[in-house]
Write a protein that binds this DNA or RNA. Structure first.
Lengths: 218, 218
DNA sequence: TAGATTGTTAATCGATTAACAATC
DNA sequence: TAGATTGTTAATCGATTAACAATC
């Protein structure tokens, strides 16, 4: 009766978890054995109570008044929580600069994440390898997603072909999509999606800068 | 007295603006002259009232009951709002795959955004050009940011050098940072920052997938 | 006119923060 | 013990959604 965890965790919390994990590992590497929520909060510029709540949501043991959380256990719990030991695999469609960047990105491994293959419609690209991973023809998306048994698909194609790619992925059994193409994809309700519109992020940042500059004062 | 706009707009709204803009342009290209908030909402999977509020926040004229908003005016207002005509310039430090991807990204232009130069500490990279843009030695960040008069800096270096790069940028007059390095940067309060942790996003997506799968049912 | 669509005011929802008693 | 740190309950805050009167 003491493993009763909240059934679901807020999206924002989830987003923060990998960041905690990274920091926890860094502390462990520095030889620490315990960490307090307050310390972590200071390190990351977050609110202490927020950190405490987040940690409590994943930790299998209670924190220790006076000394905080045992690092080792906390790291293990968080890795379990994030499924770091589950070898979460994905494929990426669209092997342009961005697709290449993702295929070569080293930080994924630390979370048990890996992109196992790529697809591209350009016959000059299909058949090559990037960072040791094979690139297949885009016509084989459905077939190979099914065969590989992957459930996460990454879309880094131009907007014009993204919906088509997405449909092919879904047919192949993809359940979660990380979409970098700047458009709204039509998908069934039970498919999970994260949209990563780089131009929109950039524009929003520049908009905030303007807003601050134009503000009378603070 | 009819240009009284809310002084500030929510971060989330701001994030949506570029998406509206993109869609509005598409509608214009399709020959439409007016659009209703309800239609846009349907198109983008958002709540109609939310869209209405967002549009009202930037539109200089009221929407028209019965027919909606005039596309032309709305596009113009939104471009003004986002500063699309202001040629917002940025530099990127770290010309690896990701830096290259951003330097070559075509969608920025539509929002008046451009990355005008890159920096890299690798002497083999400094001195080259990417997508027609010069890459300079990382030792010249402070000097050239100042000389170019740019206010937005993009960090795509490894985490280990990101803080150093950030400091150099701030000295060079950078006011807003788009950070892709997976770490928490220490910056003064008046500097605007957007953190774009790719591994964290990926991990969070995979976490949501797990959570859905593990859920008893819905 | 009738009906679609608007803008606005109030209610809801969800996440963050504050307050505080409990504990090593 | 005293004090740092915890977990929990209540207050705040901000964004989204609902309700509805106003308008072309």
């Amino acid at each position: 009766m003491d493993d009763a965890k909240p059934l679901s965790i807020s999206r924002q919390s989830l987003q923060r978890m990998p960041i905690y994990l990274e920091n926890l590992k860094k502390l462990r590497a520095a030889g620490k054995s315990h960490v307090s929520a307050a310390f972590l909060a200071g390190e990351l510029g977050l609110h202490p109570v927020q950190v405490r709540k987040d940690l409590a949501a994943v930790s299998s043991v209670d924190g220790n008044p006076r000394i905080g959380f045992a690092l080792a256990g906390l790291i293990e719990d968080m890795e379990d929580f994030l499924g770091c030991n589950n070898a979460n695999e994905a494929v990426v469609v669209g092997v342009g600069n961005l697709g290449r960047a993702l295929l070569s990105y080293k930080n994924f491994a630390g979370y048990g994440l890996s992109i196992i293959a790529g697809f591209d419609s350009d016959p000059a690209v299909a058949g090559t390898t990037v960072h040791g991973k094979e690139i297949f023809s885009a016509s084989r998306i459905t077939e190979l997603c099914g065969r590989f048994g992957v459930h996460i698909g990454i879309i880094t194609t131009p907007a014009s072909s993204a919906q088509e790619v997405c449909d092919a992925m879904l047919l192949g059994g993809i359940k979660a999509i990380w979409n970098f193409a700047p458009l709204h994809l039509n998908i069934p309700d039970d498919i999970i999606i994260t949209n990563e519109n780089l131009a929109a992020s950039f524009a929003a940042l520049s908009g905030r800068l303007r807003q601050q500059r134009d503000a009378p004062k603070l």
